[in-house]
């Protein structure tokens, strides 16, 4: 069946079987492999994308469910010059990437978190990425990268915020 939706700001139409997931649509039919295929049962968050402004596991969305809706993938998250944006630069700087498999999902989840909370607290950051598993970093550097972005976007360090 043909599915029409907005993908990373562009109107998109793709002909796929009705019983595949959004994850498979992206990777196998549109060759957009930035969205990673991890557990495929909604546990790991590697396949996270933004559906109408909310972070979701693309492995749990049936492809036809995105008909008429807006999807943003990691390919749609970048700086004005097309390179990494400040959040992605912070991930590199903080050493928040080892094997890199969880990174697209982490950046997607963090992008929604930063949009929703503006200047999230450490607690909100930890909750915001709680649906994304990382088996390398122990999360510390990932939380630091997001905190770094908060600071650079004009947020205050948490202690001063509460003073």
């Amino acid at each position: 069946m043909e599915i029409r939706f907005t993908l990373n700001g562009k109107p998109t139409a793709v002909d796929v079987p009705p019983d595949i997931t959004l994850l498979r649509l992206l990777r196998d039919y549109l060759d957009m492999t930035g969205t990673k295929c991890g557990c495929e049962i909604g546990e790991c968050g590697a396949c996270s994308v933004i559906l109408d402004g909310e972070v979701v596991n693309s492995c749990l969305v049936l492809a036809p469910q995105v008909e008429g809706r807006r999807v943003v993938t990691i390919e749609g998250i970048r700086g004005p010059d097309g390179g990494p944006n400040d959040l992605q630069e912070a991930f590199i700087e903080a050493g928040a990437i080892q094997c890199g498999f969880c990174t697209p999902g982490m950046v997607v989840a963090a992008t929604v978190l930063l949009r929703k909370h503006g200047y999230p607290t450490r607690e909100q950051i930890i909750e915001g990425i709680s649906g994304n598993l990382c088996r390398c970093t122990g999360y510390q550097q990932i939380v630091e990268a997001i905190q770094m972005t908060v600071l650079r976007r004009g947020g205050l360090p948490e202690k001063e915020e509460h003073a």
Binding site: E54, V55, V56, A109, S130, G131
Partner: peptide, 9 residues
């Protein structure tokens, strides 16, 4: 329940 991703669906 679940995670942000699960609660959104």
């Amino acid at each position: 329940i679940g995670s942000p991703q699960i609660r959104n669906r």
